[in-house]
Amino acid sequence: KAKLLVLLYAFVATDADTICIGYHANNSTDTVDTILEKNVAVTHSVNLLEDSHNGKLCKLKGIAPLQLGKCNITGWLLGNPECDSLLPARSWSYIVETPNSENGACYPGDLIDYEELREQLSSVSSLERFEIFPKESSWPNHTFNGVTVSCSHRGKSSFYRNLLWLTKKGDSYPKLTNSYVNNKGKEVLVLWGVHHPSSSDEQQSLYSNGNAYVSVASSNYNRRFTPEIAARPKVRDQHGRMNYYWTLLEPGDTIIFEATGNLIAPWYAFALSRGFESGIITSNASMHECNTKCQTPQGAINSNLPFQNIHPVTIGECPKYVRSTKLRMVTGLRNIPSIQYRGLFGAIAGFIEGGWTGMIDGWYGYHHQNEQGSGYAADQKSTQNAINGITNKVNSVIEKMNTQFTAVGKEFNNLEKRMENLNKKVDDGFLDIWTYNAELLVLLENERTLDFHDLNVKNLYEKVKSQLKNNAKEIGNGCFEFYHKCDNECMESVRNGTYDYPKYSEESKLNR
């Protein structure tokens, strides 16, 4: 008799109507990190870190770059004969040098303040090359056809396309004075040089004057150069050297050249137009028929994500570079809930034993079982409120962090190594801060989002509990077992918050 009662009780308990509160689960393989956990499985997430590029040089917003090819900045601007293909260059979106560009200054020497000139050019998007001192009329008392084997072109001695090597005419090199007034309405880049012979005999042979000088002056520039005559090792078949100089001439300003020898005179100059998204990159990537809004030396990035880990040097509207390998923000729920887990921000989770793959029309909802059958029903209101809140948060985070910009490298010469090392340390410090901030932001927001979901499920549970009161009992896994019969209409009233407690209280009292 006792065995019969136990079996009867078990049958009745199993047959009781139930309603459970749960949440969506799926077959997603997404994982995120939080402050407290690593690799948390979630139903949905968004990636904030771009880690792919196309490996190509592309047009930037429809404008092609200027590819210097086998030449570098120095060779292009001075007019190395091997860089003749660059003479027609007028406009570009950015400038590309190759790491091993070999054609710079063909006659050995240095372009002074080269690093600063590169910085200036990094904001130039177009130029006009014009004859600042016409070759045939500007130097009537001097020979202007100086050439050298060091600047050979097609097997013949030649010289820079933008400079003139002035030497004596006959047996004399009379003092020369020439000036140019900038009437271009924009900055003009003027380049010139000073020749330093290897011996007094060479000085006399070329310029006749043993104590020659070169003077260059404008409103913002004033220097006097004296040739340094000295024996030097042979470089590119030359014992002599040429140093090259430049200045930016403001609109309306005048530049005056005065010399008694050794002047490498300007022939062509450049009127410059600035462009905020221009820059110089060093890259071996090849040019393709493609378009982008962000270019790196590795390749083009076409992404609206706020961060990238491809390269710190970028041109155009680019994500911020960070050292992170993963920045994924959760938008959905835990896919593998932890039992009795309390989140960092106070939300209680884990009283549900598992997510439901059968509930596909919402994030949170119900599963019921009664004599009429069983089924899932999503709670659309709480789901939609959660979707709206999380979507707004993700968009806000992306908008705040998605300050796209150009980031170019800084140039230092060989004598500025300590400054370069200090600059690298400062840049590394800023990069570490950006990386830390980005990672911390994602970790915190992921923790908040998961706790937010847990709290929403808990609130749904409490909503049902407050309606049923003692007409049902909690069975410990997020479910309630009714003390009365609850048909589909009754189940719907529980879900929509209109459950009639008094209607079922007498039946429940008897069954309790």
Rank of each mutant, 00 (worst) to 15 (best):
K1S: 12
A2L: 15
K3V: 12
L4D: 09
A10W: 13
F11H: 03
V12S: 14
V12K: 05
D15Y: 09
T18F: 02
T18E: 11
G22I: 03
Y23D: 05
A25V: 15
N26M: 03
N27I: 00
S28K: 12
T29P: 09
V32Q: 06
L36T: 15
T43D: 12
H44A: 13
L49M: 05
E50I: 08
D51Y: 05
S52E: 15
H53Q: 12
K56R: 14
C58Y: 13
L60S: 01
L60C: 04
A64S: 10
L68T: 02
K70M: 09
W76C: 10
L77E: 05
N80G: 04
C83S: 07
L86P: 08
R90V: 14
S93D: 10
T98G: 10
N100D: 15
S101R: 04
N103H: 15
C106T: 05
G109S: 06
L111Q: 01
I112S: 15
E116C: 02
R118I: 12
L121C: 02
V124W: 07
S126L: 04
F130L: 05
I132R: 04
F133N: 03
P134K: 15
P134A: 06
P140M: 12
N141I: 08
G146I: 13
V147M: 11
V147A: 11
T148H: 02
V149H: 08
H153A: 15
G155N: 12
S157K: 14
F159Q: 02
L163V: 12
L164H: 09
L166M: 00
T167M: 10
T167H: 08
K168F: 06
K169D: 12
P174F: 09
P174K: 14
L176N: 01
T177V: 14
T177S: 14
T177E: 11
S179D: 08
V181P: 02
N182M: 05
K184R: 13
G185R: 15
G185Y: 01
L189W: 07
V190S: 00
W192F: 15
G193H: 00
G193C: 05
H195W: 09
H196T: 05
S199P: 07
D201N: 10
Y207R: 02
Y207N: 05
Y207A: 01
G210Q: 04
Y213S: 09
Y213D: 03
V214N: 04
V214Q: 09
V214M: 11
V214E: 06
S215H: 01
N220P: 00
F225A: 02
I229K: 08
A231S: 10
A231Y: 14
P233V: 15
K234Y: 04
R236T: 03
H239Q: 15
Y244M: 11
Y245T: 03
W246P: 02
E250V: 11
I256A: 11
I256E: 10
F257S: 00
A259C: 10
P266W: 05
Y268L: 05
A271F: 03
L272K: 00
L272A: 11
S273T: 13
E277Y: 14
G279R: 07
I280R: 03
I281C: 07
I281E: 12
I281M: 15
